[in-house]
């Protein structure tokens, strides 16, 4: 039981007559970094949105799981049907765009999830100074300390995305869903942020689901790569290489070719 965090079973989502996601079965281990690659329109973003509770899966009537998942009491994931079990109450996405609140400073944006805790008794024991300290630490880790009083309109794309990442980390979710978070950034900023995410993953032991269309990125970050096609998992490839990886590594190159071949079929 320890080795399973999340189980997907007959998860389906259709828009009209187009099937976006159709996964028979998928298990995600805790503290894993799973990368999902696939062509655009293969359903990878929809999968993340389903897990984030932003989309509702098609109801599957004949599949009933006896294990009742511990759904969030905040009303967040209550619409998730029995096709997703074990979804942590604290699951949060990092979106493709920064999606910062333009009226808040960098620091306020990072602490944004706190506003959702108001009047929520479960978190009243967390004192304000400790939250403040956590925010400062995040600012430091994300190299944003000097920018903490700036507004989003004053930030570069890379900084804004770091703030967005910081906001999700401050919420302290068990499962982080990343939807091509670095795709809009230039090469150097992207490399920098990839290193940052890797460091955070190693230190904080989160479970990460990372959607990308960049095979190289998936190989550098993930300990498991899922290739998606037409809403289903086409291949499940473990990457048992130690961090930090080099893109030029021969076994990585081999895998890269393997995945590219799979995608090209």
């Amino acid at each position: 039981m320890d080795t399973t965090l999340l189980t997907l079973h007959n998860l389906k989502k259709t828009y009209g007559n187009k099937t976006a996601v159709n996964i028979d079965s998928l298990v995600i281990q805790p503290h894993s970094f799973t990368c999902i690659v696939g062509k655009s329109g293969c359903g990878k973003t929809t999968l993340l949105r389903l897990l984030a509770g932003l989309e509702t899966p098609d109801t599957v009537t004949n599949v009933k799981d006896q294990t009742t998942a511990s759904y969030s009491t905040t009303g967040q994931n209550t619409n998730v049907a029995s096709c997703i079990t074990g979804l942590p109450a604290k699951t949060a996405p990092v979106f493709q765009e920064p999606r910062l609140m333009p009226w808040l400073t960098v620091k306020e944006n990072i602490m944004f999830s706190q506003k959702g805790q108001d009047g929520n008794s479960t978190n009243s024991d967390v004192s304000l100074p400790s939250l403040e300290g956590r925010c400062q630490q995040l600012l430091q880790e994300l190299e944003l300390t000097e920018a903490s009083a700036l507004y989003p309109s004053q930030l570069s794309g890379g900084m804004a995305q770091r703030v967005s990442l910081g906001r999700t980390l401050f919420y302290d979710p068990e499962l982080i869903l990343m939807d091509e978070p670095f795709s809009a950034l230039d090469y150097f900023t992207r490399r920098n942020l990839q290193d940052m995410v890797l460091r955070l993953f190693q230190h904080q032991k989160k479970t990460i689901l990372f959607v990308t269309h960049d095979v190289e990125e998936a190989l550098l970050l993930g300990d498991r790569i899922l290739v998606m096609e037409n809403g289903n998992i086409k291949a499940d490839i473990p990457v048992a290489l130690p961090f930090t990886r080099k893109a030029a590594d021969s076994s990585l190159q081999e895998m890269r070719q393997q995945i590219l071949d799979l995608l090209a079929e």
Binding site: L54, S72, T74, G116, R167
Partner: peptide
């Protein structure tokens, strides 16, 4: 969506 994903009421 950001608010919803962070569990806002």
């Amino acid at each position: 969506e950001v608010g919803r994903s962070l569990g806002f009421s």
